[in-house]
Write a protein that binds this DNA or RNA. Structure first.
Lengths: 257, 257
DNA sequence: TCGGGAGTGTATGCTCCCATACAGATTCGC
DNA sequence: GCGAATCTGTATGGGAGCATACACTCCCGA
């Protein structure tokens, strides 16, 4: 695969690197393909690399002793994951698994760290990335404590709209395909309860449900129901980075780190 | 107060700065005292400064619409907070409040950012700090999803032992004073349920309870009960930074960032 | 194309935990 | 030192949500 340079060059995080630095990074990079539903790394594994998702979809998750899956985050093409390596993390403490057949670029942590040492811009970019995600987790923590499953789900839809929302004739459509079980695994409830809750929201006209697809029919009302301001919809439609057509992916709200 | 230089110099995060850089930082720093139970900053406030807690204790928290308090973190002397300013955070999104009469050093974000630009070591230190705390929040998220209040509390005690534990004739003592309401606000339950749970743990011989003080009588058994390895006890006893006696505070596990 | 697995819809008893209420104990502020 | 506020302990009804069970649909892969 010769395209790994292309993927790296078009990642916002590495944009400010000089051609020379890019080449150094590219030389040490490796590209790998993973089938659907396949682990990329495990907890307690040495955190040696940083990952850049080129194609497909990945989830970061962990498992409870009785086998339930807690989803920490979804990763889309153009996004970096496993970046805590750069903050001195020695071992992973979550699972990374593909949800679709995926292509991943592996960047050795030491190489990126070395580049950060000489590039304040890259260094700041990494700090911002880690900080942005921390903020996201903290916000999620707040929306879980003391809240009923119904409220949790409403908050989740707000987050999904902000991160993956696109405009749609009926309202705001969530760009990613998610099963009831997926949603349940994000807010920490059971699949059955999720089905029930989704039924309620549909009946009350807040959302439209097709198989694996959700449309928020009235974002303002949904936001008001949990006392939050409605989020902005960034509306990045094309997300797949496709080197054959050499289009720059539309930057999304989080800058496609 | 002329001692702010002393506080800054003895904070692990700024240790690697040159005398000249330290002086520049010190010149722009301001020191403030806050009484007990007093807000330091609010959500939506402009995130202009980074804070260094010199004395006292601070909690970071947010409130649900019905007035319940969710505690995100406790801050001890020698620790930095509000550091997301350095990752480009524009506005706070949590409350910071004193739990004890406290002394705080305010460092303008722009000054620290400027220093980071020229000091890779400081830059890395900030990234590690933000990353460490992110890891902590993510771990907490995992221990909240799908778990009963009892399990949440056991996990909480493990965390407390790791962060604030000190050896004690009967086991591991939690160094900080916490009310039942405080604990409830961390795991997202009610004060009454917390009282009940603590009673159960005491009866089953896992913990010893005095007013506001907790001793874990059998850390290994407690850890085993939730399927975790028992944490290491770092045992940093003296935590107050007292410029009058000019002692370096004992470094704790998290390096007293 | 056909079979199996994954996803969805629905019902039911039961358990955990919340809301509410109240009383005694302790500590803090004045 | 005294009153008030906070903290702790306990009881009770009711409700949210879990575990379990089962039928049906849709999709994917062989």
């Amino acid at each position: 695969m010769q395209d790994q340079l292309w993927y790296i060059k078009h990642c916002r995080l590495f944009e400010r690197l000089s051609p020379d630095e890019l080449r150094r990074l590219e030389q040490r990079a490796r590209i790998r393909k993973f089938p659907k539903n396949t682990p990329i790394y495990f907890p307690n594994e040495a955190a040696e690399s940083v990952f850049l998702l080129a194609e497909g979809r990945v989830k970061l998750c962990s498992y409870t002793p009785d086998g339930k899956q807690a989803i920490l985050a979804f990763i889309e093409p153009g996004e970096v994951f496993g970046e805590l390596t750069l903050a001195g993390e020695a071992q992973r403490d979550e699972h990374a698994e593909t949800m679709q057949p995926s292509t991943v670029v592996l960047l050795p942590g030491e190489v990126v760290s070395e580049l950060m040492h000489h590039s304040p811009a890259l260094s700041l970019g990494v700090t911002k990335l880690i900080g942005l995600r921390r903020k996201r987790v903290e916000r999620r923590l707040k929306t879980l404590l003391f809240r009923s499953n119904r409220e949790r789900l409403l908050h989740l839809f707000l987050d999904l709209a902000e991160q993956y929302g696109e405009t749609h004739p009926d309202g705001v459509r969530i760009r990613v395909r998610l099963s009831h079980l997926d949603l349940a695994s994000v807010i920490g409830t059971t699949r059955e309860t999720m089905t029930l809750l989704l039924g309620e929201l549909r009946t009350s006209g807040l959302i439209g449900v097709e198989r694996h697809r959700f449309v928020i029919l009235n974002l303002a009302r949904l936001a008001a129901a949990v006392g939050m301001p409605p989020p902005r919809i960034a509306d990045g439609t094309a997300t797949t980075i496709d080197p054959t057509q050499k289009t720059v992916p539309v930057p999304r709200k989080d800058w496609s780190f």
